[in-house]
Design a protein around this nucleic acid. Structure first.
Lengths: 237, 237
DNA sequence: CGTTGGGTTGAGAGAGCTCAAGCCTAGTGG
DNA sequence: CCACTAGGCTTGAGCTCTCTCAACCCAACG
């Protein structure tokens, strides 16, 4: 749970102007495809789905946003939303009107913090891509969700993570690029391999040999230095 | 060609401190997976490939960056690169050291402009996903590239776009999520349908009635903030 | 207690992947 | 200037895997 809209407290005490919104319910639309961009949202709690409607009518899910996440940034540049955002659970969000007003810290540290969040967004988005093996995709997906909303408990002496998925199998498929049935079968396989326990949308991730960070980070020493040779500093407008 | 590192002129005349880098050549690495994040790059001209090495050794291409694009933002939040950036052509880039120094406009309009670019990045990234039909994916990909580096010419009375691809078929496949051979066959099909003419990496996109599947998605692929008319937005709609 | 929507499972067909071989272009060295 | 070579590109033949279609189960809810 995020008590505030901006958990990172401004060290300089600058105020950030945000609008706290009343709670919203499953199915509530934050914005719709084609509407004008009016500002950024942050999620205080709950889960918001951001999706894109394909020209053929098929939906693709671009992201599931949880507490602390910022959404809506894609539309800032063009000024118009190409996506639709819908609440999957009861949720609370904050709204940051755009453009930033001076009293909102437009020239303070706020833009830098927003940039930091943008970086995180990009990083997440990179990982949403469908892998060669659907089982791996689904497993990685579940682990990321678990890291966000899971609770650690003890399961037979080993630590495990329990969570309740806010989204349907279909939506997972739309996010990962697989059919609903393929997601089902993948979860079934993971269950038989002892990786997870499933009961509807409630699941338990066992920590088995699940996160095989095998190769670690080698190959650093041998790497030739980046190009930053004699760089001519210049000051541009 | 982008004459400057920051094409959007600062209206307030604030200076931006960037380091202009010497030209780099095909195969040059800007940064490597596992190295520390030191700052953002912008591409002045040429093409830079940003890729992620899969745990199984298979590479995935996250983006192809052309003149005006900003790269490296994914690593800002964590401080460490999870990707590798390699030049596909001769190229020139600018380097913006991080954290921003005061004289670099850290508290000016610069962070806001960076945010604007981050928005564009996210928008692009959303579109990199593999569609149901490889032919559509490849066609859309080619059109986006054409909008960036293509030249409009006349081909039998109709306007067309000529371009030379900086990347191989394999890399296109790694970007779209298809095998190299599938990309080949898709391009072959597009050629037979009269959508394109192919000669190695040089191709000609005819503006047939190929694109407008439905009314749909206007201004989608159009250029971000920088004013760059040249591109044939109409064919991208 | 019936209904509804999500979830699961099965069978079949089509699509893309893999493996493999040949072609062709661009870059190299004589 | 030209032959040569290497790597990219193309094309073909199976095979595997996912998608589609369909039926059924189940839990939540009125």
């Amino acid at each position: 749970m995020e008590p505030r809209c901006w958990p990172e407290h401004a060290p300089d005490g600058s105020a950030v102007h945000v609008e706290r919104q009343p709670p919203i319910y499953p199915g509530t639309t934050l914005w719709r495809h084609g509407t004008a961009f009016t500002g950024l949202y942050t999620v205080r709690n709950g889960c918001i789905k951001v999706m894109e409607t394909d020209e053929t009518g098929g939906d693709r899910v671009l992201s599931f946003a949880f507490a602390g996440d910022m959404i809506g940034l894609e539309a800032l540049a063009s000024g118009r939303h190409e996506t639709t955002a819908v609440a999957l659970t009861e949720a609370m969000v904050c709204f940051l009107p755009w453009p930033l007003r001076a009293e909102a810290g437009a020239d303070g540290a706020l833009p830098l913090r927003l940039l930091q969040r943008a970086s995180t967004l990009l990083q997440q988005r990179s990982r949403a891509i469908r892998l060669a093996d659907p089982d791996l995709s689904v497993q990685r997906f579940l682990k990321e969700i678990a890291a966000r909303i899971g609770r650690v408990e003890q399961s037979g002496g080993a630590p495990a993570i329990r969570l309740r998925l806010p989204m349907s199998r279909m939506e997972i498929g739309q996010y990962l690029g697989y059919a609903e049935e393929t997601v089902c079968r993948s979860m079934h396989r993971l269950r038989r391999q002892g990786e997870i326990e499933v009961s509807g949308r409630t699941l338990l991730l066992k920590s088995k040999a699940g996160a095989p960070r095998s190769a670690a980070l080698p190959a650093l020493a041998a790497a030739p230095a980046p190009v930053r040779a004699r760089s001519a500093d210049s000051t541009l407008a």
